[in-house]
Design a protein around this nucleic acid. Structure first.
Lengths: 345, 345
DNA sequence: AACTGGCACTCGCGGGCGCTGAGTGCCAGG
DNA sequence: CCTGGCACTCAGCGCCCGCGAGTGCCAGTT
């Protein structure tokens, strides 16, 4: 029956522990929060919370500290996020305003988020698979080699050089290139990369045999680019904030730094974004919930961003499990929205 | 007159301190090194070395520790570097062998160097200014816009989209593009980017007026790419090794992490490479010698690499000033040589 | 049944104390 | 110019002890 109160106590413990970074005991809890009960009652509830595995005592006769599961419960019961303060909001807008190109947007965004949250910020470049084709260009470079250039609406440009038969640098070859290029553009422009790729799969059949090989080759390049969405670049900032991780530094910071260097690991942070964890559109992964062992002492707050409705890529913040989840979630969400709006133009 | 002996003592102090990471005293020095003199003599010499600012005592009645200047003197008197052990050599070769493209070479190299030295490795992508032009392509993308693609012999591809008058997508415009492109290629292919740029500066004059604007435009793009050599990408690995920096972590690691995030700072590490500090071709920057304040507690060992004789870019290792300079220098030089050979093919 | 006040118990943390040992500077003698 | 010896310093370590925050449990109240 006192379930509601126990939730409140858990919430209070998490808040105090985040504030003070010291284990919190029944008495000091009452000093800071006006729960309507006595210390003894709080103690009893704490004992129950400990049985449930939500909090734990580092030593006998010390206060309690939330466990990963405790933070999880705390995060799950968050219903609404306060919006950013207006001062912060203008700071965000101002900082992002000056960006000149895509690289600059990403760079500024990730730095902004890092300094806003005082944690490590991670940002994925807009995903190829979710962006649309703006133009495909094909050109001959040297005998027997062509270059395929793919321009996407996010401003990304991908190019690849491939060998091809027959020699495209002859006049006849040139003509063929133009023909195939026009066809490809007609079919692909304006579509999602994935859709375009599917659409084009059947394209070679519509051509006369001489052109088929060439077209297949171009399609293969597009598909290659699609597959490489996994190899997306990831940018990060604010690693120095890791220095505030805990008192037992060297042990705890080392695996984290290692993890941050593995781009594969970083990209995996964003895989679960489809599900949209909380109702707020922000996903939180706490401590051991993280796939990578090196991140067992950290939590990741992530969300997606993108022009319009499409989720192009992910953006996240990484910090100690002992973090101010609500405000971090607010910051991540706000920055994601701003950058989305920015990319929309 | 005992100058030679004092040098030997300094050398011994540096070696012992690097090994033990504890201040070294006169007595323990004699236990590990067969200098032909007594402890008292060593003490006297130490006092002199301290007066010269090469060593310092953290507390009264503690041993001595080398200062930045002490390390400098130590490094300057190194004459030859031992080559890599054959086991290491095969490990290096094996690790780099599997690289599939330029990105992979850089990635593997920097990781290799980090794990070899157990320090942070920093590597600059091959510099544009030192690489040669392989091909220039120009194509119309949409009305009034052309795309200039620059292919370099290091495998890099740079592209830029620019607005141009008159409209190049008309048949006449197409012809113009081809004409100018052929001219540019004729003049630029095979040259260093810088040379090509200079050569092309006068090119527009040789064309009839209608083509001039277009040619100027292309030249401007080339020059833009040249200027951007400063914005070269830098890759790093092994940041987790920073955890072994010193006992007073948070204070010392934080500014270093910050510095590592500023690519401008990292690039500046390589500016002095022209001078070729030591006779070994490896440059060392110790503690406060570093331009950036955040690196005051670290030393940087750097050298250049590149296909053939040209120095394309830099590669470096960053670690605490208390490091094994000779072996670090050996590793850096060896890896630079291997990667140079690799790029030469 | 649920809450409260009280009580006995635990134990981490910080301060004070004294010893030890490595290290130093200096001096007188070879 | 080097050496052995001597007196001095002081950081680090181990030890002890008291404080105080925190706990669990129990008996009493509502």
């Amino acid at each position: 029956m006192s379930d509601e109160r126990r939730r409140a106590i858990l919430r209070a413990i998490v808040q105090d522990y985040v504030d003070t970074s010291e284990p919190v005991g029944s008495k000091s809890l009452l000093e800071r929060h006006a729960l309507g009960v006595s210390a003894a009652t709080v103690r009893n509830d704490m004992a129950i919370l400990e049985d449930e595995g939500l909090i734990t005592a580092p030593h006998t006769s010390a206060g309690r500290v939330p466990t990963d599961a405790g933070y999880r419960a705390f995060v799950d019961q968050i219903e609404m996020l306060r919006p950013l303060s207006s001062a912060q909001r203008t700071a965000v807008a101002r900082f992002l305003e000056g960006a000149v190109d895509l690289d600059d947007v990403v760079d500024r965004t990730v730095r902004l988020l890092a300094s806003l949250t005082r944690k490590v910020a991670v940002m994925q470049y807009p995903s190829l698979s979710r962006s649309r084709v703006r133009h495909v260009e094909v050109l001959a470079v040297g005998p027997g080699r062509i270059m395929v250039v793919l321009i996407l609406d996010t401003g990304r440009v991908e190019q690849r050089i491939v060998e091809v038969e027959p020699d495209p640098s002859t006049p006849a070859g040139q003509e063929r290139l133009v023909r195939v290029r026009d066809l490809v553009n007609e079919l692909a422009v304006g579509r999602l990369l994935a859709d375009a790729s599917a659409e084009l799969a059947s394209a070679p059949d519509a051509l006369d045999p001489a052109d088929r090989d060439l077209a297949r080759c171009i399609v293969a390049v597009l598909e290659g680019a699609l597959v490489e969405q996994r190899e997306e670049r990831v940018v990060l900032a604010g690693t120095s904030h890791l220095a505030r991780l805990g008192p037992d530094f060297p042990l705890t910071i080392e695996p984290v730094l290692d993890a941050l260097e593995e781009h594969v690991v970083l990209l995996r942070l964003f895989t679960s974004l489809g599900q949209e964890g909380s109702a707020n559109g922000v996903a939180v992964s706490i401590g051991h919930e993280n796939a990578h062992d090196g991140l067992a002492a950290t939590s990741v707050v992530s969300t997606g961003y993108g022009a319009g409705d499409d989720v192009l890529a992910g953006i996240a913040v990484l910090g100690p499990t002992r973090m101010d989840y609500p405000s971090t979630m607010t910051s991540v969400r706000a920055v994601a929205r701003y950058v989305s709006r920015l990319l929309d133009t």
